[in-house]
Design a protein around this nucleic acid. Structure first.
Lengths: 167, 167
DNA sequence: GGAGGATACGTTATAACATAACGAAACGAA
DNA sequence: TTCGTTTCGTTATGTTATAACGTATCCTCC
């Protein structure tokens, strides 16, 4: 999934994710309860990794009394069914735009604006499997988190540099 | 770096790491103080990721009074100079076998025995950079953590399966 | 439609990981 | 030796995650 543009229709974006989740849960015979759906929705509020305690606070504002285990249980469920990804390097979580479709988590993180996007490059997965195999290591799960600048922030930085140059 | 075998000379292994660290610090004009060297040594005690609080406890057993900031400061120093890597998915740290030689952290983690090893595949780095570039993303730093089975544990598991088959 | 097992949830407490802030000490160049 | 910089000790606190236990809800089978 590419980086969301500033003017993408985010409510449609959330709706699509919720629909996909609903469908994936039906397919798997998993129960997408109220709490779980709401947590998923909150994860999707931004395209940035969200922490468990931020979710907790959001839940509170929605009038749902909740303690940490409530949130972590919902997150565990969503993780287990591939509806969200954990961002280990940030202690946060982001929504998965295409659940079901198997993929290791390849995540791009913009250090400037905090936006996250998925990469989903099968060749990359394969390269890791091959490279590991050369050491006799058999791969089970991968965590790939790449920091850098997203297209928007990169453009912005470039134009700032131009201004500095002029001045 | 390949996975350490059971009979590798671990004291030589630690010594090599300490020597390399010493040299790298000299090269950089960085001060490898007592605390920092001891923490590095403790990180190298095993080839498994070590948590900050485990290090803290080890320091205590060595008679060095210490509070969390002492350990985290030492870890920050070691990270900053590339002498250790952070293992985000485990909240732990492992020694870097070849400091100086630039490389993103590509880490293999055995889910069975907990051993960690570095991969260091430049083609992999490049694949990530290229793949990200296709989305207009410029890479700055990568975290690659791969879970699976190390050669030893894989062999062990295979022989267990044979036994099950016989029985 | 009620019994009973499985799954999900609320709640309290605590574990595990990490940093802020401040003053004292050690170091190193002028 | 003095002064600025870096390192360290210490106290307190912030942040992230889980253990444990009882209750409620759901689903199935009779």
């Amino acid at each position: 999934m590419a980086f969301p543009t500033a003017r993408h229709d985010h409510s449609a974006c959330i709706q699509a994710a919720l629909d996909a989740a609903e469908q994936e849960c039906r397919r798997r015979g998993a129960r997408l309860t109220d709490t779980r759906r709401i947590v998923l929705e909150l994860v999707w509020e931004s395209h940035r990794p969200v922490g468990a305690y931020a979710l907790l606070e959001s839940l509170g504002k929605l009038g749902r009394s909740a303690a940490p285990p409530t949130v972590y249980r919902a997150l565990d469920f969503l993780l287990a069914h591939g509806l969200i990804h954990r961002v280990a390097s940030r202690n946060g979580f982001i929504g998965c735009p295409h659940p079901g479709h198997a993929h290791g988590g390849q995540i791009l993180l913009c250090t400037q604006c905090g936006m996250a996007a998925e990469l989903d490059d099968p060749a990359l997965d394969q390269e890791i499997v091959n490279s590991a195999a050369r050491l006799g290591f058999s791969v089970n799960r991968q965590t790939i988190e790449v920091e850098g600048l997203c297209p928007v922030c990169r453009a912005q930085r470039n134009s700032e540099e131009e201004q500095n140059y002029v001045a």
